[in-house]
Design a protein around this nucleic acid. Sequence first.
DNA 1: TAAAAATACTCCATAGGTATTTTAT
DNA 2: ATAAAATACCTATGGAGTATTTTTA
Lengths: 322, 322
Amino acid sequence: MYEVVYLERSSRWGEGVSVELRHLRYFAAVADTCHFGQAAATLHVAQPALSYAIRQLESELGVELFTRTTRRVALTVAGEYLQGEARRILDGVDDAMHGVRRIAEGRSGLVRVGLTGTAAFSHLPVMARAVKRELPDVALQIEADMLTPAQCDGLRAGTLDLGLLRPPAVGDDIEVRIVEQERLALVVSADHRLAVEPVVSMADLRSEPFVMYENRESAVNEAVIRSCRAAGFAPRRDHEAPGTAVLLALVTAGLGIAVVPSSVRALPLQGMVIRDLADAGTIDLALARRAADDNPVLAAVIGVVEAAFAASVLGPDVGTAT
Amino acid sequence: MYEVVYLERSSRWGEGVSVELRHLRYFAAVADTCHFGQAAATLHVAQPALSYAIRQLESELGVELFTRTTRRVALTVAGEYLQGEARRILDGVDDAMHGVRRIAEGRSGLVRVGLTGTAAFSHLPVMARAVKRELPDVALQIEADMLTPAQCDGLRAGTLDLGLLRPPAVGDDIEVRIVEQERLALVVSADHRLAVEPVVSMADLRSEPFVMYENRESAVNEAVIRSCRAAGFAPRRDHEAPGTAVLLALVTAGLGIAVVPSSVRALPLQGMVIRDLADAGTIDLALARRAADDNPVLAAVIGVVEAAFAASVLGPDVGTAT
DNA sequence: TAAAAATACTCCATAGGTATTTTAT
DNA sequence: ATAAAATACCTATGGAGTATTTTTA
């Protein structure tokens, strides 16, 4: 009768040998073949090195992983368990390595996007489709109907990574790239006299009640006021709306008219008519990002989105691309 | 304006540096503190060694994990991802190490147990409770109502790890430890004349029709026949049952009487009466295992179960413990 | 007796240490 | 000016190789 005596932990490798992936890789190879020689060959190491490493692992664990005679090597029950765990761990390491590379290459990750009211309908589909196609592992998180200042706040606070907004008035900690120059268009309710007029120009709006964004710094408001001034009048600001949805609802209800970027055409609401304005000004649409943002996925998304916007004609008469 | 130039993969560590847990441990420490000096201190290594290891990891990945100036260290997005993964991997390794040790110590694992018909009711509760209490991470998988030969087959085939069976007639590849010596008892239907007799002895069974196990090698059958022979008669073998449940059902139905180990008392069936037999023989109950089985959890379970059986009195008159 | 794992030893690659320089605030 | 990371260089541990022995089927 004899008793199996396990090597004491740290009897030979005084407390200092920590388990390394090398041990697990070696162990997995031996566990798969149950043959030190063959495993050593596939690992491109000499057999004694393998034996040594496995001994080290067993010693560190204080557990026998193989029952071996010179003719037969077999996993112990503990060894069988470790075989599964080792595989899981090694696969996990591989996955982590690939994941890191994909993130660094901008092929994976999350981009939180803020959108102006009108862009949500006209540009978001193009954007989302392009990203889905070119960067299938990139997730977009959309925050819609955000006015420019809110988007800038979001970018600065780090709750937003990308904005689709109206360019002027952003600090230089935010980098802006214009992607579209849109002509302004008229929105009236279906029963409005201008809904059937053959041609509409800014001058026709002189005495109309305007529905405008309530935010004083709204870039759309500014563009509208500029267009009105060019036509020789100041708009009658009768109603204010906090966002595009409300603005269009008020117009549809007949409370007034509105002049908005022509991308609202992508949202043909019931009872609402959109008319060209031959002499109205234009307004830019731009992508905005933190200048200091080093997330590679953001650069990748911006590249894909810019290409998609450049390639897509967003419907007839929706302004001229830059 | 200068451009960050990533070290080419394998520019300096020619294709040979594989990622090791050391790299992940170092990385995790730096990622947590965002400070090479402090991380080096907690890791008990010098700062240059840390810098070097992180560089190695970055080079192997081809990815920048930290943006560092001498005054500020910050994780890149890829680094943030790896921080999570590294933690998961390192925890996984730790768990695997503990799991292996627990298995090797017999404190964790699965034991598949085969039970004889009567033991399922009398001994299984004691057994299961003891294992649950002493070895909470050990799972028992029970296969009930198995006769001795079936259990031996199961043990040899490796579908069973432990048997609770009737000792004789097992080869020496199976190791047997007797845990109980049970007296044989009489089972009759409630309306049988012997159900109310003040004292019953073997001789009273001389002309009764017996219900016996159909398996010719049944150890219970042998013990019964031996007891009858000692009382001077051979049992009238009128009916046969494949297992204990059927056997008791037949007795209850009044098709005959049966003599069985007194542990059937743990299963007081409707319409069935159990009587002591003063002069009947005894039959052993034993734990059986593969002699070559080196699963530590099995040894642990056997230890716990034997102690539990020794400590428990399985009800009045249920035989004498060895 | 032959195949295969363990041992004995040797060596050099490299992890890690010390000293110093660079850099950014 | 100073804190902190990078660089340069050196040392020595230990991983891996070759040669040999031991073991068992």
